[in-house]
Design a protein around this nucleic acid. Structure first.
Lengths: 168, 168
DNA sequence: ATATATGCAAACCATTTGCAATCTA
DNA sequence: TAGATTGCAAATGGTTTGCATATAT
């Protein structure tokens, strides 16, 4: 992980590792780095795919030794990681899905309504468009979220396999 | 479905009134136009702002005579209206928000995290961008949702009034 | 030591559902 | 009249919270 990324768009200055950033954030507010919080942060930073709280909970319990955490603690820590800027949260079909945010370039998603897969993409034009639109409305943009839903290549081929289109 | 659409950018060919379209949709699947469904559709078509289920429920009970409906019926009918293409649903801060979709041009939103107001805007560039991105990933786009969050003009002036930034 | 965290069970909240009574076509 | 719909109350499902106990600093 960490890997001083250096993308062209949205590059974030990654001076600290996610762990360090988290520690800094917690210490700054008198919060403690407990065994479970550390286990969660470590686990999350090793996998870079999108995930939800339940998946994380299961993964933690399944993986290595007794390095687990209770459901409430997983949820609590996930919120802290979002506050710390390590993760970005988005709601899809009713449940929260998380992805890395610290040290990652700004991007948006293509969401396959058939297999629920999220495909990332980034577009400079979109940023420009966003700022232009905001300016027109004297609106101060703080962020945006674009999700293009449809069917991914894989599902287009193996069409009529299992499930079909759900809601956007 | 059907209706040989031929819009330039989002403008929908409105041959039927929302009520007619709803009736057609329902009849086509053996569903009945009950007093409460009619009341809901009528009420919704008279107001063009964004709203959620609870607001609608309250409005229905408050407004005119005994033209109300139970909570389950309101939720059920809202789903039918979405299926019928009359309404578009989007999830904001945990609860579903609806807006008219039938006969309305495609558009996206600016979301004020301070006053929760939704400001609409439409951009042809965005559509082009969406299609270009989708094409790059051999993805078949079916729709998209762009929400630019930030602070609206009003809140920027009366700054530090009441609530402040929530999550995106 | 002592304040903060954990985990359990219970609470939340928006939304959905089972089912008997009630209507629409 | 028959089959669909309503409304009530209860169930859901993801997420949060109260509180006694365990733990980090």
């Amino acid at each position: 992980m960490s890997s001083s990324a250096d993308f062209s768009l949205g590059t974030v200055n990654t001076a600290l590792t996610p762990q360090e950033r988290f520690a800094e954030f917690m210490q700054a507010r008198g919060k403690r780095i407990t065994r479970q919080r550390q286990a969660i942060v470590d686990h999350v930073t090793t996998r870079h795919e999108h995930f939800d709280a339940e998946q994380l909970l299961a993964d933690l319990r399944a993986s290595a030794a007794g390095e687990g955490a209770s459901r409430p603690t997983v949820y609590r820590t996930l919120n802290e990681m979002v506050e710390a800027g390590l993760l970005k949260k988005m709601v899809l079909d009713g449940r929260a899905v998380y992805e890395h945010d610290y040290g990652y370039p700004q991007h948006d998603h293509l969401y396959c309504t058939s297999c629920q897969r999220l495909i990332e993409f980034s577009s400079e034009e979109l940023i420009a468009l966003r700022n232009a639109v905001a300016a027109t409305h004297q609106f101060r943009p703080q962020g945006h979220r674009l999700i293009i839903s449809g069917i991914c290549v894989d599902c287009r081929s193996k069409r009529s396999t299992s499930r079909h289109q759900d809601r956007v």
